[in-house]
Nucleic acid binder design. Structure first.
Lengths: 175, 175
DNA sequence: AGAATCATGTAAGGGGTTACATGATTCG
DNA sequence: CGAATCATGTAACCCCTTACATGATTCT
């Protein structure tokens, strides 16, 4: 569910670097983003169809003599707006850090958006709030299994928070 | 994809406590496992249909005067075998700890299977190997984004490992 | 009287995966 | 000469989610 959204937004992110056709988008993903994201060719075409239907990208055919025509996609103003909204907002769940937040961070750097620190700070706020809630619930627990469960949630959240702070430090250093 | 498998296996796990009909299975999940797992009524019926088709559960109708007939499901030998195979094997990825491993742990305790420590140990081995691989890859990295990415993977894995050790300690203490 | 519980499902819709279809060019 | 690259997609299949359908009983 959040996967659908982040896959679409990630494609918009690639198009922020300039118009591209499906095949190019796929090779971009498989060379630059393959460490944290997989996307099949047919999914690319399916996603592009949906994005076009929703008016966030538009296409133009480019004829070639000895090859099938390329369908070159570019962002519409709505698409650009949507992308910028996506990239400036933190993810809701710790589990979404692994792919979706990482993708945001990737584009912030790739596109030199200068919003790194605010994005990271916003994400820290969200996770800190999560952690607070978890710690509160933890106190009311009697069951051993639930204690173990909440301790897992807390540990994953804490680890993500520490990592975010480390990120922030290493990025501040760069500028 | 591992979700499908774990949902099915979790239902088998509930049936290990005795035969049950769909409605009962659903309320079991929503009262006892709701902290880490959601399952809609219609999914329950869909899953049961599939499980029966695959010969791991079988059903018997129980007629009631003033209600729709209950369809009571129980494990076949193959179903029991499949469940025991599932519960004694660790999950492959850190991301699967959150639901699938927790579900295994839940059933180990619920069914008093006495395999807790071996399951936890096996899981520790798997994640320790993952961590080793991550640490090796980390050394060969030049790109700043990749460093950050691997540091995230390492931190989530380390946190899960620490949690597993804590689990083990708290369970050993119980026996 | 209305809400919740008991008890079963089906249908429609959307999404993803894998396999299939086509065919030229270029690299080893 | 065969494999990889370039370039587009469609079709079949499976899975999950949400809404719909039915209807009695029991709790508030």
């Amino acid at each position: 569910m959040s996967f659908k959204v982040s896959a679409e937004n990630a494609l918009l992110g690639i198009l922020m670097t300039g118009p591209k056709h499906g095949y190019e988008l796929h090779s971009y993903v498989s060379t630059k983003m393959n460490q944290f994201w997989d996307l099949s060719m047919s999914q690319v075409y399916a996603l592009l169809k949906r994005l076009e239907k929703n008016g966030v990208v538009e296409s133009q055919e480019e004829w070639q003599e000895r090859r099938p025509a390329k369908k070159i996609f570019s962002l519409t103003p709505r698409g650009k707006e949507r992308f910028l909204g996506w990239i400036s907002s933190p993810v809701e769940h710790v589990r979404d850090v692994r792919i979706e937040f990482l993708a945001k961070l990737f584009f912030v750097r790739e596109l030199h958006l200068k919003e790194e620190l605010t994005l990271i700070d916003k994400q820290i706020d969200v996770l800190q709030e999560k952690l607070r809630v978890i710690e509160n619930l933890k106190e009311k627990i009697t069951d051993e299994f639930q204690r173990v469960l909440y301790s897992f949630k807390a540990s994953q959240t804490t680890a993500a928070l520490d990592w975010l702070k480390e990120c922030k430090a290493s990025f501040s250093y760069e500028y």
